[in-house]
Amino acid sequence: MCNRRDFLVFNPRTTRKFPFFLVVFLAPAVICYTLFMIYPLIESLRMSFFSTTPENKTVFAGIANYVKLLTDSDLAPRFWGALRNNFVFFIIHMLVQNPIGLLLASLLVSKGKGRSIYRTLLYMPNVLSVVIIGFIWQLILNPLWGVSESILRFVGLGKFFQPWLGLPEYALPTIALISVWQFIGIPMLLFYTALIGIPKEFIEASLVDGCTERQVFWRIKFPLMLPTVGIVSILTFVGNFNAFDLIYTMKGASAGPAYSTDIMGTLFYRTFFGQQLQLGNPNMGATVASMMFLIILFGVLLYTFAFQRRVKNYQL
């Protein structure tokens, strides 16, 4: 994409009369996308600047909703808590999912029997619904009926069994690891794509120079894969700050125990739709959504300007 855009910029024939057939080609996509994606997003942003009176009237509120969300003694701890948990969730993915994805990709790249079988199996959890995955893992980890305790006992680690999903200090990492289990195939495939894209001559040349495989990996392959590392990171970031289904399925919208699994998605759901004996507040919900929007935007911009630009310089 970058290459093509550069091409366009430098081409003197860029400017041309807008032909009608282009309208025909672009209109369906642009209209559908604008109406059902861009408009709702902008409308949500707008809603966050209004509030609803008890008489169900909508009045302009300026940034009052944001101030309340960030400073109110009841609401702010939920927001900051959700944000903190979301970062923990993201960091676990970065530290576990992506390195293992890279490891698996590099194992797959070397020639060997059954490579495509491994690839198929490793990617498989990705095509399952989060609802199903959440439920399956809940069964496995259940302290009364689950099999995780007997597995641990079988390998002699029985005493380490804990009701992980119920303990505030373990619940979030446990759910994050389940999410890693599901999504490991994506970084694996992307890294795999990058690895097979590296010209063989480079590697052969360096092997002749006497480099070990490990050196080849870290000194030659990895730097060449940095753009993919960037893409994987930003995809992980966007995905994690948009996560909801898994926690909703496993812990409900209250994201217990003691809000320890509460992330932005569940906070949004609770404020927008309400919960037990409580109605939702659409304006506050829109405010939370707008904060998520800003956080994701910030991450994407950071990636585009700080990472992508710099990495390009290393490219060949």
């Binding site: 109110d72 009841d74 209250s254 003691a258 919960q275 037990q276 004996l277 939702g280 507040n281 506050m284």
Partner: peptide, 14 residues
């Protein structure tokens, strides 16, 4: 307060 902060029932759960 109808602003999405946990209410009494939610607090009692927690």
């Amino acid at each position: 307060d109808q602003f999405g902060a946990p209410n009494l029932e939610n607090d009692l759960w927690q």
